[in-house]
């Protein structure tokens, strides 16, 4: 199989704290997909993003980009990796230097990677990239960051990434600071980039509704470990892991027939830090059993397009492959039936 990026047994620890625990996953090079990584603060989603971007190295395990270990790349290979894997950050306000015009963030990568041999060529590349994300070059270039709205600035950052013709974009909460009415269009543009330019997209978020709308697959992390993974229709449409169930039921939907209800969910932030040898979710889990305290659950496969690390599914087969992407749906393949 040809993988664009592949994580093998990746663990990241900071002192005694485990931010990410034993993640093995890969993304197809031939079928560019959109993968959501979801979980609460401290679940390890940003750590995973930073590892995918090569910003930090795993404490244990390896990361391969198109077959090459990124820790052992030559400088030319590293340069190519840096061009082909692009980040889009959460805060559209702080990534800009307020003293430079918008043009600066676009001309710098053009020069750095010598994408154009003339001013005119550079200009047309930049204009194309801006148009790609729905911005009018004449209204954008020459302006200062404070003259653009948050949504427009975030689009400029996406345009900057697109300019480099990346194979992968890692977007860490790209719309959480953008107004609801503008979120939809930015996410729609990410999906267009995926479908039209074949860019694989990792969408890091705690917003499961948008993950459901734009992504093919999702990885739900809880305290650094994978709780559930698979096609979004399965994991969000009919979650199996009690943590994913809690996440999905907490989405504030503008649908009065799907109210949160009054059942109080225990405040668990204070008391769930107690380490235990078993499942990390056990202290908060409404279905906790004796077994859960003793050992960590393996990845069971309740159905062919998802896996759940939970003993509730101990009668299901254990995933044969360490790589969670084995249950991922490739785009272009017929979608699964919700709840099937």
């Amino acid at each position: 199989m040809s993988a664009l990026i592949e994580l093998k047994g990746v663990t990241k620890t900071y002192g005694s704290f485990t931010a990410l625990s034993d993640v093995t996953m890969s993304l197809s090079d031939t079928n560019p997909s959109m993968t959501a990584i979801a979980g609460e603060s401290g679940s390890g989603k940003t750590t995973l993003a930073r590892i995918l971007l090569g910003f930090i190295n795993p404490s244990v395990g390896e990361v391969f980009y198109r077959g090459k270990d990124i820790a052992k790349m030559s400088s030319a290979e590293q340069r190519q990796f840096r061009r082909e894997v692009q980040p889009v950050f959460q805060d559209p306000f702080e990534v800009f230097n307020p003293f430079y015009r918008i043009d600066h963030v676009l001309t710098t990568p053009v020069k750095r990677y010598r994408l154009a041999d003339s001013e005119a060529k550079a200009r047309s590349l930049i204009e194309d990239a801006l148009k790609r994300v729905g911005l009018r070059p004449q209204d954008t270039l020459g302006r200062f960051p404070h003259e653009l709205s948050g949504g427009q600035r975030q689009r400029v950052m996406v345009a900057r990434a697109v300019l480099l013709r990346p194979r992968m974009i890692v977007a860490d909460e790209p719309v959480s600071m953008v107004d609801a009415s503008l979120r939809a269009t930015i996410l729609d543009e990410l999906r267009t980039l995926n479908r039209e330019l074949g860019i694989s997209i990792i969408y890091i978020t705690h917003d499961l509704t948008t993950a459901f709308q734009i992504c093919d697959n999702i990885l739900v992390l809880y305290r650094g470990a994978i709780a559930e993974a698979g096609a979004v229709e399965r994991v969000i449409g009919a979650p199996r892991h009690p943590y994913s169930q809690l996440l999905v039921s907490s989405i504030p939907l503008p649908d009065l027939d799907r109210a949160w209800g009054n059942e109080e969910i225990p405040v668990s932030e204070a008391n769930s830090s107690r380490p235990n040898a078993g499942c990390r979710f056990a202290p908060r889990c409404p279905h906790v059993m004796d077994q859960c305290w003793q050992s960590a659950p393996p990845k069971y496969m309740p159905d062919s397009q998802r896996l759940a690390s939970c003993f509730l599914y101990r009668d299901s087969p254990i995933a044969p492959d360490e790589d969670v992407s084995a249950v991922f749906r490739l785009p272009g393949v017929a979608p699964v039936v919700v709840g099937g």
């Binding site: 009415s181 979120r183 729609d188 948008t210 709308q213 734009i214």
Partner: peptide
């Protein structure tokens, strides 16, 4: 109406619609 519609649900995948303009 447009604000309510710009919110995606988790039942069916649909085209994401924002509100044009600022």
């Amino acid at each position: 109406k447009l604000l309510v519609e710009s919110l995606p649900g988790i039942e069916v995948k649909q085209a994401l619609t924002g509100i044009p303009g600022l």
